[in-house]
Computed example of a mutant assay.
Amino acid sequence: MSKPFDMELFLGGMLKGSHVTRQRHLRQAETIHNEIAQRWQRETPWAWQRKHVVWFLEHYLSRHSEATRYHYVLTLRLIARRLEKSWMLNL
C-alpha cells in the first residue's frame, strides 16, 4: 500500500503570496491531480505529460467561467515550473 501523493510538499517551495492564495493553489492542484489520476491513472505529477494537462483544461474546465480557468492555468504554470517543464498553457 502506497501513501497518497502530498501536493503541499510537492508545491511547498513554489507557493508565494497570501495564505488564501497559497491555499487556493493547493486546493486547485489537488483537484487537477485527482482528475488526472482518475482519468489517466497517473498518480504523481512527475508522470504527467502535456496532453494530460490540456485534457484537464479542455474537458474538466469547459463549463467553468473564464476567471476560474485563469486561476487553474496559474496553478498549472506553478506545477510546470516545479516539474521544470516548458509547457505553454493558454486559456
Rank of each mutant, 00 (worst) to 15 (best):
T75P: 12
L74V: 04
L57D: 04
R22V: 02
R24F: 09
R63K: 12
R22P: 04
V73G: 09
E43G: 07
Q38F: 15
L74S: 12
L57F: 03
Q49W: 00
V20Y: 12
H33V: 00
H25V: 13
L57G: 04
S65K: 08
K51C: 15
H19V: 11
Q38C: 11
A29Q: 11
R39N: 14
Y72R: 05
I32M: 10
R42L: 13
Q38A: 15
W46S: 03
A67Q: 10
K16P: 01
T21E: 04
I36C: 01
R50M: 09
G17N: 02
W55I: 12
E30Q: 12
S65W: 02
V20R: 11
N34A: 15
R39W: 15
H25D: 10
S62D: 07
L74Q: 14
H25S: 11
E58W: 00
V54H: 11
R63V: 05
Q38D: 13
I32C: 04
L61E: 05
G17C: 03
Y70T: 10
L78C: 09
S65R: 05
H71F: 13
H64N: 06
V54F: 09
W46Y: 11
F56C: 01
R77L: 10
L15P: 10
R77I: 06
S65N: 03
W46E: 08
R22K: 15
K16W: 06
Q49R: 09
V53R: 03
S18A: 13
A67Y: 07
E58R: 07
R63C: 08
V53G: 05
F56P: 06
I36A: 00
V54P: 06
R77E: 14
R63W: 06
E58F: 00
